[in-house]
Amino acid sequence: MPKIRWRKWNNILHRDIGYLVVALTVAYCISGIAVNHINDWNPNYRITKEFISIPPIHAESRDEIVAQARASLRLEKEPRNAFRPDPSTLQLFFEDKTVSIDLPTGNVLIERATPRRVLFEMNQLHLNRPKKLWTYIADLYALALLVVSVTGLFVLKGKNGITGRGAWLTAIGFVIPIVYWIYYISF
């Protein structure tokens, strides 16, 4: 009976599937770190605020207020929408900015939200925002990653393999989440 060269096939699988998952692993890692710190920053949008002043607006009707605001701000483009959250504020919505005007004082806040290039796309894919077909691609990626990690255990034999140093390092990899979880549920 011919000897099955399982390690050779193990290493081929590890190498080739490894190549396939590099792009998504890098994208998901970067996005993972970015989204992990969502309390400290906005990983999807860069929000810029600009403060300017215009003369106070005392008009009565909404249409007049909007017209005066647009004239004062020299906004030629028609806003998508206008809204008054309270009697002293007018908001004008444009494709690329939101303009909030404090009518009695004429203080204006112009807010722009720009998607962070590439990171925005990475986050959307990482958080499976497209859903549909991407759900299955992400499942396949997870399976591929599983194959890469399991085959990785058996790439080497000897003292640096899974029967030697590899066993200790793999054990540490198991212990860290288990110990943390026990700590987490205990306190």
């Binding site: 999807n44 949008y45 909404r62 806003p79 998508r80 929408n81 809204f83 008054r84 959250p85 309270d86 009697p87 919505f93 444009f94 494709e95 939101t98 939200a113 958080l127 925002r129």
Partner: peptide, 27 residues
């Protein structure tokens, strides 16, 4: 935004199930 001035209502969705983009403002 409401059909009447100075009123609005929050439409809250489960985190991650629906994600509204900031570009939706004004639409």
């Amino acid at each position: 935004g409401s059909d009447k001035e100075f009123e609005m209502i929050q439409f809250k969705v489960e985190d991650g199930v629906i994600v509204f983009p900031m570009e939706a403002k004004g639409l």
